[in-house]
């Protein structure tokens, strides 16, 4: 059962939702791309449906709405500390199916990974609702069908844009915002069913692959910029920064900030040791986490096949081709 609304009608619904929620989604920022006269599609607040960018893939994912790039954990003075006053407003985040599946991975990492629940994540997460919109087409580098993340359930609403009309599938709590419209159409949510790229994630990966010369090509090609990690909807690594205010060194704050396993410094330890010095080793670490290590703990692959790492790599390194190539290596070595 679905509501079928015109864009204007759905805008009316959005205005009702805005009474109770901040609306966040992919927006097109004119001329904010890294290259001159190019746009940046990224997450931002939306006021009406026309702000929502559904035609292109966003460079950054929805993860930053619940896991910001930089977050103050507490302020400290000589003998006491205090958490920031933080009362997030209720929000609705618009995102695609792959990104919604990525949120499930974030939940596992921050809420169900060992015995500690990440309170900073939890309080933002609890205030956040997700409206998933179906993809009208598969974009370059997408391989969500291969990772099984083209479909999803458990959303707060689902949208299919159909030209002039939008098929809407709100969950029960959100149906009241659709009051006055008929929910009568016997149709189902439609997900993208085919990508240009198919990836067959290899089974039987093991530590045997660690020293394989397969990774050497990435040692030569990768420049260690970290774009793949920062654009990735499932990368959750962070580091801590203690800042001492310059005009009073006895006061400061502790921040947690996104970190990248491809960027220098990630494995630095006291004494000057560093685990993974070569970019090839760092690529191996990232790939293994995405398609092997994570699944050992959580029974699903971390990668959701959004292909953003391919989209943003300035050296044209393809994650999906790396995985495909790895299958050949595993087959040969086993």
């Amino acid at each position: 059962m679905a509501y079928i609304l015109t864009h204007a009608e759905f805008d009316t619904v959005l205005q009702r939702l805005k009474q109770d929620y901040i609306l966040i989604g992919p927006v097109r920022k004119k001329n904010k791309g890294k290259f001159s006269d190019a746009d940046l599609i990224t997450y931002g607040q939306i006021e009406s449906l026309s702000d929502l960018e559904t035609n292109g893939k966003s460079q950054f994912s929805a993860k930053e709405t619940i896991f910001p790039p930089s977050q103050t954990l507490f302020y400290f003075t000589e003998d006491e500390y205090r958490e920031p006053k933080f009362e997030p407003q209720k929000r609705i985040v618009f995102l695609r199916a792959c990104d919604f599946n990525a949120i499930k991975r974030l939940d596992l990492l921050f809420l169900e990974n060992g015995q500690f629940v990440d309170a900073y994540y939890k309080r933002l997460r609890e205030k956040t609702h997700f409206f998933v919109f179906g993809c009208e087409k598969s974009y370059e580098n997408c391989f969500c069908v291969s990772t099984g993340t083209n479909q999803c359930e458990g959303y707060d609403a689902f949208l299919n844009f159909k030209g002039e009309k939008i098929n809407l599938f709100p969950s029960e709590p959100f149906k009241r915002y659709f009051a006055g419209y008929e929910e009568n159409e016997d149709i189902l949510p439609q997900f993208i069913e085919r990508n240009h790229i198919q990836v067959d994630i290899p089974e039987g990966l093991s530590t045997k692959i660690y020293d394989h010369p397969y990774w050497d090509q990435y040692g030569k090609r990768c420049i260690g910029c970290g774009r793949c990690n920062f654009s990735c909807p499932t990368c959750t690594c962070f580091t801590m920064q203690d800042i001492f205010y310059r005009d009073n060194k006895n006061a400061g704050e502790r921040r947690r900030v996104w970190a990248s396993c491809q960027v220098d410094g990630f494995t630095d330890m006291a004494g000057g040791h560093s685990y993974r010095k070569q970019q090839g080793e760092r690529m191996r670490f990232k790939v293994m986490h995405k398609i092997h290590d994570f699944a050992k703990r959580f029974n699903m692959h971390m990668c959701v096949g959004c292909g953003r790492c391919d989209d943003v790599c300035p050296e044209y390194i393809s994650f999906s081709q790396c995985i495909s190539g790895l299958k050949g290596v595993v087959a040969h070595d086993n």
């Binding site: 920022k29 001329n31 904010k32 791309g33 890294k34 290259f35 001159s36 940046l40 990224t42 460079q59 950054f60 790039p69 910029c225 970290g226 774009r227 920062f230 996104w258 990248s260 943003v312």
Partner: peptide, 18 residues
């Protein structure tokens, strides 16, 4: 020159006016 914008992996640097 805009090099900082080109090098930034997380769009912390973005383009202002020309």
């Amino acid at each position: 020159c805009g090099e900082c914008i080109l090098k930034c992996p997380n769009a912390a640097w973005t383009r202002g006016n020309k």
